[in-house]
């Protein structure tokens, strides 16, 4: 737990520093000459508490590091594999690419493409991933666009085809 505690404590320090810095620019809040808790009151309070937790984890991280040097020092990168980091990048990446892809290909083809990509990555065979993705895309299109009438993009490609 040593390293993760230390990293957590550093995040706490960074976060509270960030809040303290920004909240200085928040306006004061006065009602009929009386100063009341303004916009910075609550964030500052939280940042202060987080700072205290930061110190706690700093100390606990250091002590547990000293207690058990050998095993803990190496534990930081234990279990981090190329595959795992790749899967993170892919899920987050799909999140960021989701809309652009739909914008280009339209909702049905776009979701099919993303579906096949994700399923291939998750060890589904080509044929099944294609079938499942098409069903999924039609289902999503049907629920969100036909029933709920949400503006899923139509696809730049189709607009071009239409002239």
């Amino acid at each position: 737990m040593g390293w993760s505690d230390l990293i957590l404590s550093l995040s706490c320090f960074a976060l509270s520093g960030f809040v303290f810095y920004h909240s200085r620019f928040f306006p004061k809040f006065t009602v009929r000459g009386e100063k009341l808790p303004g916009p910075s009151f609550f964030p500052d309070l939280l940042a202060f508490l987080i700072l205290i937790f930061g110190f706690y984890f700093f100390v606990s991280g250091l002590t547990s590091l000293f207690k058990a040097r050998e095993e803990l020092r190496s534990s930081l990168f234990k279990g981090v594999s190329l595959y795992k980091s790749l899967s993170f990048v892919i899920i987050i990446g799909v999140g960021f690419l989701f809309y652009p892809v739909l914008k280009i290909f339209g909702s049905v083809i776009g979701i099919t493409l993303l579906g096949v990509f994700l399923m291939r990555f998750m060890r589904v065979r080509w044929f099944s991933s294609l079938v499942y993705s098409v069903v999924l895309a039609l289902l999503i299109h049907w629920i969100f666009k036909v029933i709920f009438k949400l503006p899923l993009p139509e696809g730049v490609i189709f607009s071009l085809l239409r002239g």
Binding site: V108, V135, L138, L139, H141, W142, K145, V146, P151, E154, F158, R162
Partner: peptide, 25 residues
């Protein structure tokens, strides 16, 4: 089921015409 869903999709792509020729948001 798939056929019905497919058809509704095709129909929402809609025809050509003067404004408005497709759905307006």
């Amino acid at each position: 089921v798939l056929a019905v869903m497919g058809f509704t999709w095709v129909f929402t792509l809609s025809a050509w015409a003067a404004y408005p020729e497709k759905a307006v948001t």
